[in-house]
Design a protein around this nucleic acid. Sequence first.
DNA 1: CACCGATTGACACAAAATGCCACATTGTAC
DNA 2: GTACAATGTGGCATTTTGTGTCAATCGGTG
Lengths: 267, 267
Amino acid sequence: MPAQTPPERLLATRRHDEILQRAGAAGAVGVGELARLFNVSRETIRRDLKYLAERGRLDIVHGGATRRDAHEPALAQRLADNAAGKAAIGRRAAALVSDGMVLLLDCGTTTLAVAHALRDRQGLTVCTTSLAIAQLLCRLPRTRVHLLGGEVDPTEEATTGIDVLDAIARFRFDLAFIGGGGLTPEAEITDYTRAGAEQRGRMITTAAQAWFVIDHSKFHRLTPVRIPHFAAAAGLITDAPLPPSAAAALARRGLAHLQAGGRNQPP
Amino acid sequence: MPAQTPPERLLATRRHDEILQRAGAAGAVGVGELARLFNVSRETIRRDLKYLAERGRLDIVHGGATRRDAHEPALAQRLADNAAGKAAIGRRAAALVSDGMVLLLDCGTTTLAVAHALRDRQGLTVCTTSLAIAQLLCRLPRTRVHLLGGEVDPTEEATTGIDVLDAIARFRFDLAFIGGGGLTPEAEITDYTRAGAEQRGRMITTAAQAWFVIDHSKFHRLTPVRIPHFAAAAGLITDAPLPPSAAAALARRGLAHLQAGGRNQPP
DNA sequence: CACCGATTGACACAAAATGCCACATTGTAC
DNA sequence: GTACAATGTGGCATTTTGTGTCAATCGGTG
């Protein structure tokens, strides 16, 4: 019998990832089901679940485990929307960043994609209002992260308010990446709230170069508040061609447009 | 020179590239799998992984390595240490909290357990330096969270520095829960760094009542810096009886000691 | 609500896989 | 040939996984 390589067992950590993913998707997973899936004993699965439960990632119930998080849906959901497009924008944005720069990253899922793409930059100093971005980037070696303090907005999981405006003013940024709520046909970025728009306006004026990162799902979304100082921004980074009218309007204002290809950078 | 390299074996550098690529694509790679793939010994692969891990390109796990960002760092580990004891402390601490209070939560895994135990309180206002606590509590309904801004310390995933000291001074707190690095035989809390101790000292003086939450693994740990204003704290919450000498010293200072049972409150 | 069979959980111990170290071997450059 | 780095080997410690046994739980049934 040529000992055919048996279906190789997975690394324990990969099992853990997969279990979490399945539990997250289905709401609950069974011990027997997982044991068959991974081709390991039920005892091993039980140990995996116990391990994950101790770390607060799951709740163990009779017969298996259920997902723990009370609700994290809003942000996670938005993160999944057009993930490929946002990743492409992230890579395009990261290409503008050199080692050692001082960056400002706004909150939002598109800017989070930018943060992901910064993984192999060195010696950055990053300021942000987003808890997720701060958490991600502070784990990188040789990266300093400054979180702008303020009241935490639950929908964005980011700080807002007067304290943020104050804190922004204390810095000097080489580059800012800013999100937005929508894009008007006149190629202007708008926001949901007055406070949010004001905050983003300040970000523009505090950075030597401010880029808006906008994925195409926002192209036809109309939100109420205009962002101040928009004309002082460097331009837009998007994952799809702008509507013709917007492209023309943008050019008239003298702002640049970078379109993230997505096909040319395979990583 | 026969420029033809025997296809049998790759250059070490090429192996490294290939390993990184595979790890990046699959999330994790196994030692055995790579050894077969490159036709080298497992020890060589282990050395490769170690090399790459030392440069921060991978994280080593049992059986192989994972992509750098694929799992959380040391914080998760500390969270698991004495999880039951910390949960008991958390419940005991939460019992001191009434709806509508203004709290200050220090960073650390024990204070994170306190945050977990606050789940069914209403109308709290919580200030914290910990990213994890902010993220957890901002998802609760009717809870306002304020994150004190500052430089993010990667080991604690919390803000530190002059900005935090500034921000603390702007608030008034009903109650503060504060962590510490160790407990001296004289029942004094000590910290690892001068800056950390100063920060915690300010927390004591800014709160009407400041409690230290210390699990028993810190009882015999000696850290260098004394925390200022310690005598102004309300007391200690622990998950085990204090060493006798410490208990006596604490009473002499007029500080209270609450011992979390763990058995009487089933989660 | 007591009873029953089937499933699941908990634990102890055995087996297997992996990690680690010291040292031998190989390959390469000078 | 020598020196140096890279790789392989073998022994032993540690971690992970499997197995078997027995207790606890679940889902019905009468």
